[in-house]
Computed example of a mutant assay.
Amino acid sequence: MINSGPVGVFDSGVGGLSVLAELRRALPHEDFLYLGDTAHVPIGARSDEEIRDLTDRAVAALHARGAKAVVVACNTASAFSLSHLRSRFDMPIIGLVPAVKPAVQATRSGTIGVLATPGTLRGTLLADVIQQFAVTAGVRVLQAVSRDLVPLVEAGLADSPQARAVLREVLTPLADAQADQLVLGCTHYPFLAGSIHAEFGDTFTLVDSSAAVARHTRDVLNRGGLLGPQHTAGTVTYLFTGDVDAARRVVATLTSPGVHNGQHLPAAAGPASGPAPAPLRIERVRT
């Protein structure tokens, strides 16, 4: 069975582009609708009810545009909204789980760190996976939190002296405690990889869940008979609730060929040479 509808991807801002990059690697023939709720970012400091409401409105907007499934590419929104969304919408809803399990499996020092937002720390999802995978394995988990990092990524300053100063402040205690794995508990944080490496070298192995979420999404679509046509390259349409011009500049930077998770890596599809990429499809939406 073939379903030509797009896959929706939601985040509070541009952080979910790190997940979108992995989704496009795993599902190169699928069309995607990316919705960044930049009018309300960051959402981590908002109330539980407001987080659920904003997420519900965004997923409803993607559903109205024909999305056949939605990936909630935001750790905070996943922590507070998945059960509600799955009860309301008749399509697969895929969320994020902090990548504590692979970090626990990989640690050599017996200590791992989690870099998260206030909202993710406030929810129960992170605490549950720490209890399930780290506590039972006797692995110590140290948590670091900052309200400043998400706005810096949103402003296109992931690789900047300001970002490095914040990272130096919040991550030095983890480095001093011999943490060797760092779980990136927010989809904005993979774009800080370059700054983290600039400050801490190889102290931490950075771990995030985007590749695992992409594989899971591919499996869900396959099992549900929702895969799209396999003979054409997929497209992306970007939807933002806030300033489109500002979003366009940041998206252009974070999705430029060969740039992924803050590092220069091979592009997801095709060689670097060839025709110039098509202009970004970006629209302003209300949710």
Rank of each mutant, 00 (worst) to 15 (best):
V244K: 10
A127T: 13
S160N: 05
Q181G: 01
A134G: 06
T136N: 06
D128P: 04
H216D: 14
V259K: 02
R52M: 07
L23A: 10
Q162M: 11
N261W: 07
V71W: 05
A64W: 06
L226W: 13
G185A: 13
P98I: 03
L174F: 00
M91S: 05
Y238I: 05
P173C: 03
A198C: 07
G5Y: 04
I2Q: 12
S160G: 12
Q162C: 03
R223T: 12
Q263I: 08
L62G: 08
R122D: 01
T172C: 02
V139D: 03
H216Y: 14
V220D: 13
G242V: 04
E49S: 14
G194Y: 01
P275L: 01
G8A: 00
L82V: 14
Y238H: 15
L171T: 09
G15F: 13
Q132V: 07
T38P: 13
F89G: 01
R147A: 11
H231N: 14
I196M: 09
L20F: 15
T287P: 11
A144Y: 04
G110W: 11
Q131T: 12
Q162G: 00
L192K: 07
A39L: 14
A99S: 14
A177T: 04
D159G: 00
A252R: 04
P42V: 03
T172W: 03
